[in-house]
């Protein structure tokens, strides 16, 4: 890990800058979906959980990796579905509403 550490720190620092630039342009109207979307994005930990599951042996470690996969999947799927639902409600005035 020490070998790549500096490159990884580069990546991290640059990504933080990109993140600050991108996120500061999101209007406050969209802050809730922004939060639930980024919430889903950190569910990317799922790939770490799967990688772990493939490399460990022994009941304890397998149990840990299975639990991690479960939590991460819940995070990913729940996060995207809920963001999609929220964003589906944002409509412009010009969009004709069905008459009630």
């Amino acid at each position: 890990m020490a070998h790549n550490l500096l490159t990884e720190v580069y990546i991290f620092v640059l990504a933080v800058f990109v993140g600050f630039q991108l996120i500061s342009k999101v209007p406050s109207v969209l802050h809730t979906p922004l939060m639930s979307a980024t919430n889903a994005i950190h569910g990317i930990i799922l790939v770490g959980a799967i990688a772990l599951a493939a490399t460990v042996h022994g009941a304890l470690d397998v149990g840990i990796s299975v639990a991690a996969v479960f939590l991460a999947t819940l995070n990913v799927v729940g996060g995207y579905v809920v963001t999609d639902r929220i964003l589906g409600m944002f409509k412009k005035k010009s969009a004709e509403r069905p008459t009630e």
Binding site: I11, F12, A15, V16, V18, G19, F20, L22, I23, L34, M35, T38, N39, I41, H42, I44
Partner: peptide
């Protein structure tokens, strides 16, 4: 990268 994005947000 994903963690940094979320952390920034």
């Amino acid at each position: 990268i994903a963690g940094a994005l979320v952390g920034a947000s």
